[in-house]
Design a protein around this nucleic acid. Structure first.
Lengths: 347, 347
DNA sequence: CTGTTAGCGCCTTCAA
DNA sequence: TTGAAGGCGCTAACAG
């Protein structure tokens, strides 16, 4: 730890490459090389340089670097709303992965607002991000175009068509949902309902479809009354469940399009004087952190957010390195799996 | 690579100030002025320039700007762990506030790891952040020094001593905790326990102390057995509560140092065949998002994270503008308040 | 292996 | 009111 109260350093004045060069008695070029292409400089000199660098606690000015190289060393991450329990893990995973590759992350929330989304993209562009992960569903064509026309590698979650510099992470919702149906089936459930997410959300549609197909595969009947729509929030789950409970004949098990919905459902069921899983089994989707701590702990399908984050980073990195090679798969997939806890039981 | 100055917009080639100047038939200086000091340029010319800017969808290169001005237009935010339900709101609030002021945010998680904290500070410094909000407790002296010696305005949450360029947001834990005790007292509770956070956490200590004092003020006895230690996680709450339940005589109400602890407690109580609030009332702290959805909904003390975020931003902005004026208060305070839900009831 | 020479895109004196 | 010239700190040819 060479932290002498020496000359420079002090007073917040950042050391420049010049001072390092001077101190090491070489030209600034050599300093630059010692840092960026160590193999091109004599070990002796290099040592002197590093000594100087250390003594001055010098580090390159990122802005100067970006200016000359045209590369910002920043990756963008656009999410809908970080306070939505779905996102934090995604953000964290992405940040970890990206930092490991020596990049920085610029996160931005759209708050589900198309206008804010436009601003997000704008800010990203201004900062010259080298790639963007768009982990939200309210993507719009013309914004994608802005990214694409700027040649900014982009990775989407479950939307868009892969192409040059555009990757997509496709989530296999069907797998986990099928496991869930199977699980309920094995427990003797035959009357299974589903509360979906908002119409507008593509991924919500996909989940619903997957459920319907799985039901068909199990030779189970679809009861229109038992397929209702929520909003991916707690309130929607409550409302939809109440409607279902008002039916003369209600399902013995209900699946939800996401965990918040499931939580709302459980609350509604309890309020109706029934018990989970005693009277009705409940299965969620996402496996958000709190699913483990609901009462009863929620059986749900895990959406592997950490994997998605890592894949997103990888996709970007690969687009970044092999600039021209368009022969890449550029489509990544992640699985979903059932996590059995206590909100499901035999009929 | 063809680099035609004339071909507009297309093909990801960012327009430069030169192209704008050329197109508007003025010098780059004038363009720069039209953007930064509109008053210094003839309205006529200005209009021509803006037209050109618009046509080329030109926007200044932030890196070039940063390089020459030495200012990055970025504020840093350091948090412990974004997946901790306590932080997302803080992050969001900060981001919103900061963006509103035309700045960008660089978030970084320490994962409670001192080493990672050092890296965070390092990364902030490298990016030349103009200010940093350190919203975590594991701050270390020498890191603060790095920030201070670089003259980077910093704002802390509940730690550190304010000074030149150093602000502190102090949270009035006592107020909310006192409200809670009073609430329980009014419900007839006299035997009140407390499960604290980890010894090492200053804010946890503060909460415990506040509880003890409030108890004294209410003329309530302190029963050493009823004051136990948790870890601010669910597991700690479970363990501590189990110990308490094993006592020959247990409290009729127990307060927790944070909501996760409270959730653990409720789980333990239920597992012991008792009910909340029927047998034991529970009060949490923080009012994390999910507190509203536990079973029963948790009575807790709200830690106003959004306010903290805004204050942090304000503190930084004010340090940023009135550079030299050290006569600022530089200490901000926020209140905490009880939020009554269903986990508390009369004895 | 090392130094010299040009800029990267922009802002800022200093003149006109 | 405008323009020309000189960097900001760094990297990248192009010589030695």
């Amino acid at each position: 730890m060479a932290n002498h109260p020496r000359s420079a350093d002090k007073a917040g004045s950042k050391a420049t490459i010049h001072e390092v060069a001077q101190r090491a008695k070489v030209s600034i070029t050599t300093v630059s090389r010692a840092i960026n292409s160590p193999s091109l400089v004599d070990p002796q000199t290099a040592r002197r340089i590093w000594k100087a660098i250390d003594e001055l606690s010098y580090y390159p000015d990122v802005h100067a670097r970006s200016l000359v190289s045209g590369k910002s060393n920043i990756l963008g991450l656009i999410v809908s709303d970080i306070t939505n329990p779905f996102f934090p893990e995604l953000v964290k995973g992405f940040e970890d992965a990206v930092v490991q590759h020596g990049y920085e992350v610029l996160v931005s929330s759209t708050n589900y607002d198309p206008e804010r989304m436009a601003l997000c993209v704008r800010r990203m562009l201004e900062r010259q991000v080298e790639g963007v992960a768009v982990m939200t569903s309210e993507m719009q064509e013309h914004l994608v175009d802005q990214l694409v026309s700027r040649r900014v590698p982009t990775v989407f979650l479950d939307v868009g068509t892969p192409g040059a510099g555009i990757s997509n992470i496709v989530v296999d919702y069907a797998h986990g949902i099928n496991e869930a149906v199977q699980h309920l089936f094995a427990l003797g459930h035959r009357k299974i309902g589903f509360i979906s997410g908002p119409e507008s959300l593509a991924s919500a549609q996909t989940r619903r479809t997957a459920f319907l197909e799985s039901m068909a595969n199990h030779g189970l009947p679809q009861h229109a009354q038992w397929i209702r729509q929520g909003d991916h929030k707690v309130a929607g789950g409550v409302a939809a469940m109440n409607e279902m409970l008002a039916l003369p004949d209600h399902p013995t098990a209900v699946m939800a399009s996401n965990d918040l919905t499931a939580i709302g459902m459980m609350s509604a069921i309890r309020k109706a004087g029934l018990s989970v899983p005693g009277d009705i089994s409940v299965v969620g989707f996402d496996d958000i952190w709190l699913a483990e701590f609901t009462e009863p702990p929620l059986t749900t399908v895990r959406f592997p957010r950490d994997q998605v984050a890592q894949q997103a980073c990888l996709a970007l990195m690969s687009d970044l390195t092999m600039r021209a090679d368009a022969s890449k798969p550029s489509e990544y997939r992640v699985e979903t799996h059932l996590v059995v806890r206590d909100s499901t039981a035999a009929v």
